[in-house]
Design a protein around this nucleic acid. Structure first.
Lengths: 182, 182
DNA sequence: CATCTTATCGAACACGATGTTCGATATTTT
DNA sequence: AAAATATCGAACATCGTGTTCGATAAGATG
C-alpha cells in the first residue's frame, strides 16, 4: 500500500477519534473530519464511500487489532463446570478493552455505539460459541444466547460508564454473581 | 385543542407508523411522511420542529397511553420473597406490550429503537424503583439496576424478535430462570 | 537519476433534504 | 356572522452529500 494512502487513512482515523470525544458521530460532518485530518475532500471520498462506512471500517479494524489474538478457548482449561473457563476468558476480553480504553470509549457514548456494539456482539457470539451451545437450562437456546451476551454487553457498558474503575476480575465476578450460574 | 390539529396530528402518527413498517426511521424523509399523511409541508413543521421530535413525542405519547395505568406496586401483594410480586408486574408490562404490538414493533427494528428503548428503560426504572433499591446482593447498586433492567429490555427485544410467540408468563419465567434470583 | 504511476488537492457542481416564509383559503370557535 | 386560527403550497435560503476533473505532488520502478 502506498505510503500516502496509509498516511491519510491514519489521519482520518485519528481525526475521527479526536472529534468523537467532543461530538456525537451523527453530529459530525465530513467537512469536520477532513478539516481535522487536514486532507482534501475528494481524498476522503476516494477512501470511504460515506461517513458511515468510515465508522464501520474503523470499528472493524479496531476489533481486528484488539481481539485478533488468542481468544479461542485455550486448551487445558477447566470447562467441566463451565465456570472458571468462561470467567477467565471474559476477564481476558475486559483487559483488552481496558488497553484500548481511549479508542473504545470515544466510540461509545454517542449512537455510534450501535455500530460498535454490533461488532462486539458478533465477536462474543463467535468467541463463546462453544459455551453457549450445548447447555441445557430449560430456556430456549436462542434466548439464552441473547440473554447471556446481551447482559454481558450491558455489563461492559456499565463498566465503561464508571470510567473503568473496577479491575476486570471484579467486573466478571459481578456479572457472574448476577447471572447466578452459567 | 382545535379539531383540525387533532386530525393532522393523528394523520402524522398514523403515517409514520405505517411507513415504519416498510422503512427504517432514518431512511424516511419528512416528505415521505407528509405525503403519506396527506398534509402540507408547513403544517408538519407547525406541529413538530424536526423529524426526530416527532419520533420523540410519538414514543412519549405511546408510553403514556400504554403504561399510564396501574403499574405502581399494587397493595396486598406478596413482596416478601420478592419473587412473585415482581414476576406479576413484569408479566403485566408484557401484556401491555402485546396489546400494542403493532405500534411498538413498528418502532423497534430500526435505529429508532434507541428512542423507544430509552423511554422503556426510564419507565422500568420508575416502575420498579422499589424492588431495585434496598436489595443487597454483593454487587454495586447501580450495576444491579442496570443489569436487571438491561437484561429485561434484552428479553423483551428477543420476545418481539420471535414475533411474540410465547405468552408473557413464559417470557417472564425464562427471564427469571436466567437471572437465577432477584 | 529519469520516468511512470498513482495519490492528493481543491474548486466547482448537481442533488436532495431541511426548515422557513407568507399570502390565500378553509375550518372552527365564539 | 365575525373573529380567530389551522391548513395549504409554492417559493426560498441553507446545508451536507457525493462527484468530477485538471493540476500538482509524491512515491514506485528500472
Amino acid at each position: 500500500m502506498d505510503r500516502r494512502q496509509q498516511k491519510t487513512r491514519i489521519a482520518i482515523y485519528e481525526a475521527l477519534t479526536k472529534l468523537l470525544k467532543k461530538k456525537k458521530f451523527e453530529e459530525l460532518t465530513v467537512q469536520d473530519i477532513i478539516d481535522e485530518a487536514n486532507i482534501g475532500r475528494s481524498t476522503f471520498y476516494s477512501h470511504f464511500e460515506t461517513k458511515d462506512q468510515l465508522l464501520e471500517e474503523m470499528c472493524r479494524e479496531m476489533f481486528e487489532h484488539v481481539f485478533s489474538h488468542d481468544l479461542t478457548p485455550e486448551s487445558g482449561h477447566d470447562f467441566s463446570g463451565g465456570h472458571k473457563g468462561i470467567a477467565d476468558r471474559l476477564t481476558h476480553v475486559l483487559y483488552h478493552i481496558k488497553e484500548h480504553k481511549e479508542n473504545i470509549s470515544a466510540i461509545l457514548g454517542g449512537e455510534s455505539e450501535q455500530t460498535f456494539v454490533r461488532y462486539f456482539r458478533e465477536f462474543l457470539e463467535d468467541a463463546f460459541d462453544d459455551v453457549l451451545t450445548h447447555m441445557n437450562s430449560g430456556v430456549p437456546d436462542d434466548f439464552r444466547r441473547q440473554f447471556i451476551i446481551g447482559s454481558f454487553v450491558e455489563t461492559v457498558k456499565w463498566w465503561i460508564g464508571t470510567g473503568l474503575e473496577l479491575v476486570p476480575e471484579e467486573v466478571v465476578m459481578n456479572y457472574i454473581a448476577m447471572l447466578g450460574r452459567i
